[in-house]
Amino acid sequence: MTDHVVLRVIGKLLIPFILAYGLYVQAHGDFGPGGGFQAGVIVAAGLILYGLIHGVAATQRVVPPRLVEALAAVGVLIYAGVGVVTLVLGGNFLGYGALDHSPSHGQHTGVFLVELGVGVAVASVMLAIFYAFASRKPIASGGGRR
C-alpha cells in the first residue's frame, strides 16, 4: 500500500499525534479519563496504522517482534514488581502507601508505575497479536481468494 500518497501523507500527519495522545492518556490517567489500558491500545492502534500503510516489515524495523514480546512480559513484571517493592518496604502487597514519605504521595507513585506496567503490557500484546496475524501467509481453503 506504499504507493498511496494520500494515505502516506495523512498517516504521517496522524500517527505522531496518536502516539502523543497515547502518552498523554497514560500519564494523565489520575486526573482525566484514561489510564494504562486505554493508553496501551491507543499506542498500539497508532503503530498498527503505521503497519497498515507502510507494511508489517517496516513496522517490525521500528519495533522489532523480539522487543514486543519482551516488553509484554516487562509490563506484567513492572506491575508485580511494584507489589514486591511495597512488600520489601514494609507495607502490604500493592499497598502503595509504603512507597513514599506520605501515603498520598506513595499512592501517586504506585498508581503511576502500575498504570505504566499495564500500558506497556497491553500495547505490546496488541502489537504482538497484530504481528502474528499480519505476518502469516494465506491458508485459503474452499475456493477462497485473497
Binding site: D30, G35, G36, H105, Q107, H108, V111, V114
Partner: peptide, 15 residues
C-alpha cells in the same frame, strides 16, 4: 482523602 487521585475510576482500578 486516601489516594489524592481525582479520577475515581483510576483510583478504584489501580489502588
Amino acid at each position: 482523602a486516601e489516594t489524592g487521585i481525582p479520577n475515581v475510576v483510576t483510583s478504584v482500578l489501580a489502588s
